[in-house]
């Protein structure tokens, strides 16, 4: 059975940093992959980060 692209890699949030505090806060989340390890990506490729039951965010990986 080919790899099911819709099954996400799980990760734990190990550290949240308030880059810009206040109501319009900008926070960075430091993630640590659980078992699956990170996926390999090409520069500029997008990753879809999601929190179960809440929503998702499309992040373009610059480095």
């Amino acid at each position: 059975m080919p790899h099911n692209i819709y099954l996400p890699n799980l990760a734990r949030v190990i550290y949240i940093k308030d880059e810009v505090p206040g109501e319009r806060a900008i926070r960075t989340f430091h993630l640590e992959p659980l078992d699956g390890g990170w996926f390999d990506h090409e520069c500029g490729q997008c990753a879809m980060l999601s929190v179960f039951g809440r929503g998702e965010a499309l992040i373009s990986i610059a480095s």
């Binding site: 819709y6 799980l10 734990r12 179960f52 039951g53």
Partner: peptide, 17 residues
């Protein structure tokens, strides 16, 4: 439906395809 997810106290969420 892609998968079901379930939060387990103190563990990683369990995904069932």
């Amino acid at each position: 439906v892609f998968f079901t997810f379930e939060q387990i106290k103190g563990e990683a969420p369990r995904l069932t395809q």
